[in-house]
Amino acid sequence: MSDFAATLGGIFSNPNFYFTVLSTTVPILLATLGCAIAENAGSTNMAEEGIMILAAFFGVIGAAYTGSVWIGLLVAVVVGAVMGLMIAYFALYLKVDIILVGIAVNLIGSGLSAFLMYVITGDRSATTSLHSGTLPTISIPGLSDIPFIGTIISNQSVLAWIAYLAIPVMSFLLYKTKLGLRIRSVGENPDAASSVGVSVNRTKMAALVISGILGGLAGAYLSMSYLPYFSKGMSGGRGYIALAATAMANNTPVGSFGTSLLFGFFYALSTYSSTLGIPDQLVTTLPYVATLVGLVIFAINVQRKERKMLHESGGGHSSKAQQVADASEA
């Protein structure tokens, strides 16, 4: 056991471990922020999985055929935005249940990317033959010299910087701008928003497009930073994880950072698990179990808050109002 503790200590004192944590967190974080903004507008975006894989694929294709990873990135972002629009169209205007839209888009995304990969490259599993390249990494001269921390943050992809910057940007967007105000109103009380002339569908559509763009960035990171090529099924369920991370973070950008970091941490840990002598699969299970627990805690909290609100507004008759509430739940 002391061996185990020593190895674990070794991992935790190694800055490379934290470098891995930060880089594995990036795609989850981007997708989680995407789910969060859609969720704030009252739309559950289950399609990040499909958006990510399509963006990852088209990004690589764009980069390979233009010779510029930047154009590849742009292509990925545009694909994400278009997918967001498509989801909005089907969910809001054709009235398909948004969960089913998500399922369908994921199906289309995984199928289309694999299908076109073979058509375009002749490869069945990965686009290694394309040499599409990776986005540059950034190391800031002063910062990279700091011991320990320097190693963690230096040479992270430019998209990692964008992802972490996206946290305050999303916070600003949601809580400080007109669009954010409208997104939150539409999510919370669409009748209130439409009664003062805020178009519910258009606002939701804006949120879904932003959500798509974030998914596009996540996809670009996967195929143009994390790995230098596209491989079949490379989104690997991160879109679903993002949905869970959002729910656990109560849809806030800062909370999303926390919950996606949790996943990133365990992902990174699982790559070290062989040295620890514990099965990596079980380590990988931990964030999912944590999410289940988190969901329950979150749900209990919501219920308690509702009760508390009743209690407070109930004034003198609070106990009776409480009974009423309890009875109506049963």
């Binding site: 679903y240 869970a244 699969q281 999912y288 179990v289 289940l292």
Partner: peptide, 26 residues
């Protein structure tokens, strides 16, 4: 978990899928 705590069934079942996969792989 949904019955007792109203935990979101979509998210919890998606998570359950991965737990099953990794436990199975172990």
């Amino acid at each position: 978990l949904q019955y007792k705590f109203k935990a979101n069934i979509v998210v919890s079942t998606l998570m359950m899928n991965y737990i099953c996969l990794y436990v199975g792989l172990y």
